[in-house]
Design a protein around this nucleic acid. Structure first.
Lengths: 212, 212
DNA sequence: ATACCGTGTCACTGAGCGGTGACTTAGATC
DNA sequence: GATCTAAGTCACCGCTCAGTGACACGGTAT
């Protein structure tokens, strides 16, 4: 039994219900994509009456906003790099290649993040705008991190180059779910991805190196 | 008055109706995206009863298939290059940069194609699979075209490099509709795109050149 | 016990969707 | 002119959706 504090949770647990609803959003997002992410589906998945979504979150938009503030849909730079000292990378180019590779692996294992990225491509809403900030913060962190590993050569626009390469990785990643080839490269076999990774490596090495 | 051939169009013009339906598909696709592309919406846009869609095309899937076979949603290499002899490009890298730039411009002016690319990212269906072939054919043509302009250096995987860069361009292009920044670069101003184009140029020049 | 209020349940509306059957109209053929 | 058929119209079904109002339950305070 709950002691009667002035303002707190009852036995029919409001906070737990809210948590279940938020969890249902994440699960549906990862499994079925954002297309089927409606009030009915969420309530069904959470085993909860949909009216509670309106009561506790006053509708889908605010619910998604809440979800955006809670979930971890994006890695931090530290998480991506892991143990700094274990990485055998000397130059700026080495670090760029390493980060790209880790980013690719990380994204592959985040179906929810993939789904959010797809979502962003189609519409701007509360959730996507919220997350755009987080993502750009991550991007700036990454660039700052890179700059500690080797100063950016002044004759190269490292941020723009990074943007193109990251964009490429993201797009290829998002494609592979529904389509297995792109420009004649087969992404259903690990071979295709190895070619991409090798291409990224050579691009970075040749492009980010300060001119000899 | 229509002469009475053995089998042909009546005054209440079946062929014209079919054409109007197909046109409506294109218009809706370009303007409102594929989300709102339903039987009702198409019929409404075409000013036609939806039952005719079922009669003439036996449903949405076949209608889309028909549409895929008619529309020009993708440029040919010739269209992209324009007049061969007017281009001031000498090396393979020059040509790659030129093609990428033209491709980017061309895609920018094809909202329908952009929409189809978004579509492909979300689901595989009759239309998208149909178009995947066309696109890969275009990609192979482009690579073949490039190879006539300069042999691929054996130590570089030109197709894979091209795939990454094209993927990057496509992704950035698709993003700009709903979100204006990516990795700290602002795509609402022409400045952002200029940085990207410059980055592509330097990447291509440094990467595709045969090693000196 | 009773009244109260937070929590959860149920039933419903109105709208839009894909899809279908029955009807009307226009034109060609006889 | 009567008839037949293709082209187009209309009304409807069953479903899912977002959103809402009315009600049932269960602790708490009085």
């Amino acid at each position: 039994m709950v002691t009667s504090q002035q303002e707190d949770f009852m036995a029919r647990d409001k906070e737990e219900t809210k948590a279940r609803i938020l969890a249902a959003v994440g699960k549906l997002l990862a499994e079925s994509g954002f297309k089927s992410l409606g009030v009915n589906a969420i309530a069904r998945e959470a085993g909860v009456d949909k009216v509670l979504i309106y009561r506790y979150f006053e509708g889908l938009p605010r619910l998604l906003q809440c979800f955006a503030q809670e979930g971890d849909y994006w890695p931090t730079v530290d998480e991506l790099v892991g143990d700094d000292s274990m990485v055998d990378a000397k130059t700026l180019a080495d670090w760029m290649a390493y980060l790209l590779s880790r980013f690719s692996d990380n994204l592959q294992e985040r179906p929810m993040t993939q789904e959010i990225l797809r979502w962003e491509l189609l519409e701007g809403n509360e959730l996507t705008r919220e997350l755009a900030d987080v993502r750009d913060k991550f991007a700036l962190d990454s660039l700052k991190f890179l700059e500690t590993k080797g100063p950016f050569p002044p004759d190269k626009d490292i941020p723009a180059i990074s943007a193109v390469l990251v964009a490429g990785v993201v797009y290829l990643m998002l494609r592979t779910k529904s389509s297995s080839t792109f420009m004649g490269i087969d992404f259903s076999s690990p071979d295709g991805w190895q070619r991409i990774e090798a291409a990224l490596n050579s691009i970075v090495q040749l492009t980010a190196e300060s001119k000899p």
